[in-house]
Structures are given as C-alpha cells and as structure tokens.
Simulated scan of single mutants.
Amino acid sequence: MSIGNSPEDDHPSDDRLAQHRPAPDGPAQERPADDRPSIGHVLRQARIDAGLSVDEISTSTRVRVPIVQAIEQDDFSRCGGDVYARGHIRTLARAVGVDPAPLLAQYDEGRGGRPPAPTPAAPLFEAERIRSDPRRPNWTAAMVAAIVAVIGFVAYTAFSGDDGDGGRQQVAEDTPPASGKPAPKPSAPKPADPKPDPSDSAIAGVPRDKVTVKVDATDGRSWISAKDHNGRLLFDGLLQQGESKTFQDKQKIDLVLGDAGAIQLFVNGKQVENEFEPGQVERLTYTKGDPEVG
C-alpha cells in the first residue's frame, strides 16, 4: 500500500488524453488553406507543363530571371512590395495559362486579407527597371565618328567648289560657249529635311510608317519606362499627374507602367481603352498596326 499518487495518476492514460482532444471533424482539423499548393508551386508546375524554361518566361513577361525564380520558391521579398508582387503573380499566371484570381486571393490571405498598401515608386526602379542591353554599341564613339565625317565632308566640298569655280572661269575666258549664252550655275544641293523629334504635338499628325505612343498621367503619377525596337532606353522615370510623354519608333515601342491605372494611352493617334487597376504593373508592346494591347 502506497501513500500519495500512483505513477499512473502522474501520467494520464491515452483514454483520458483522448477526452481532451478536439473531435476529428472539429474546427481545429479544418485547414483547407494549408492543403492548397503554394503560389510558387502552382506557377512552377504550370510552366513545366507548358514546356517553358525560366529564361523563356522572363523574356515573354519582362520579369527578370531572379524574380521569377524567387516567386516560384514563394519568396516575394524581391518584388519591391505587395502591389508589385501581385502584378508579377498576375503576369506570370497569364503567361503559363493559369487563372490569376485564385492565386491573388491566396496571396492576400497569407497577409491577413489586407488590401495591398500603396508602394512608393522608388523600389520599382530597382525591381522593375528595364535593363539596358550590356552589349549595346558605344554611342559616344559613334557620334564622334559622325561629327568627324561631317567636318571632312564639308571641308572637301568647300575645296572642291573653289577648284570647280576656278576651272569654269578659266574655260569661260579662253573658250566662250558656242551659243554665246553663259553657262548655268550649278544649283546648291537642297538640305535634307530634319527628322522631327517625338513630342507631344506629334500625336496630332502621326506618320503611317512609324509607331507613335503617347503616355498621359491623367489620374495620378506613375513610374514608366520605354524602349525602342533596338532595346534602346527612351525614358525611365516618374511621370507626375498631368504630365505626358510621347515616344516614336519605326517598328515598335515597349512600355512598362508602374501604376497602369493612372495612365491614359494614345497609340498612333487613337485612344486605347483599358481596364487597368490602380497600382497594377503592366508591360505593353505597340507596333504600327495597333492600337491594341501588346
């Protein structure tokens, strides 16, 4: 006979513990969100099923390879904020043929269901900047070479013109023309018309052999970036509300809009109707045959 509690009293039996466990179908067992595959897993599996590589997705969406890889690993810290993370998820989902709405809802649920807070434009310059081609030509050297060629041509023309005038004068003095009429003076070459630079007035009479895109920040400010068909950066910066930019190229214009909901577009003289949301990041391409969303 022992005094005090027995060892069995210090350690409750499995039956006693079972009395305190929640029922299998109780609230503690309902975890439907945890059973869903992660956002990164869905996007990665859809890309693999579509037979696309990370480099191909990056090229088609203009989302840089490190950001694509990070999102497929459910790391959204490189996106520059919730607004841009949602924009990347929407863009990648469309590229691999997945409905972005459930993924965006899952992303918001993972952050307490709160709507994305406004994100300053500064992080976008690092996360979404259109990178210039590292192999692009040395424009400074090309401009210097062109200036030297123009100076040489002008000098050659000047000396040749003096010699030609002297020769014609000598001929006129020694052997006058048979007709008795003075030889006609050569007409000066007509200077070529300078090419008009793209400006806000260019939208009024856009040429048919080029593509002209006007970006108007009517509903707020937005960061924008624009490139021509050679990948040359035309503009990269913040467009304040009420400001506008016009870009022109002979083949195409590539755009990235940091806040597409604040932008109104005019392509080849026609207004482009869009349903962009505030804070939505959009990548667009326009050609001579547009307007249509690129």
Rank of each mutant, 00 (worst) to 15 (best):
M1K: 10
L52S: 13
L52P: 03
G242L: 05
A23V: 04
P189W: 00
R47Y: 02
D219T: 09
I67D: 03
P291A: 08
Q170D: 14
A85I: 00
S2F: 04
Q29F: 15
Q69M: 14
R36G: 06
A178M: 14
P177G: 14
P100G: 03
V171P: 03
N274G: 09
F266E: 09
P32H: 13
P12V: 11
L234P: 02
A183E: 09
E56N: 10
N5R: 11
P102Y: 08
P186R: 09
N268Y: 04
V148A: 14
D108Y: 05
S58N: 07
L43V: 04
V98R: 03
K185P: 00
T157I: 15
D249Q: 08
R36N: 12
N138S: 09
V63I: 10
Q251P: 03
A122G: 12
V83Q: 00
P182T: 15
S6H: 12
K195T: 10
I224P: 01
Y107C: 01
Q264L: 05
F266C: 05
D35A: 15
L104S: 01
D133C: 13
L238E: 06
E277L: 04
A262C: 04
E109W: 12
L92I: 07
H41L: 06
A202R: 02
V42F: 03
P120V: 12
D228F: 04
L257K: 00
V63D: 02
I48E: 07
I39A: 03
R47H: 04
A46R: 02
D25Y: 13
G26A: 13
T287G: 12
S244Q: 15
L257Q: 01
L265G: 02
A122K: 09
E275D: 14
A50D: 06
I203D: 00
L17S: 05
Q69D: 15
G261S: 05
E128F: 08
R31V: 15
R90D: 05
K270Q: 11
L17Y: 07
K270Y: 13
L92D: 00
L234N: 03
S225A: 13
R86I: 02
H11Y: 12
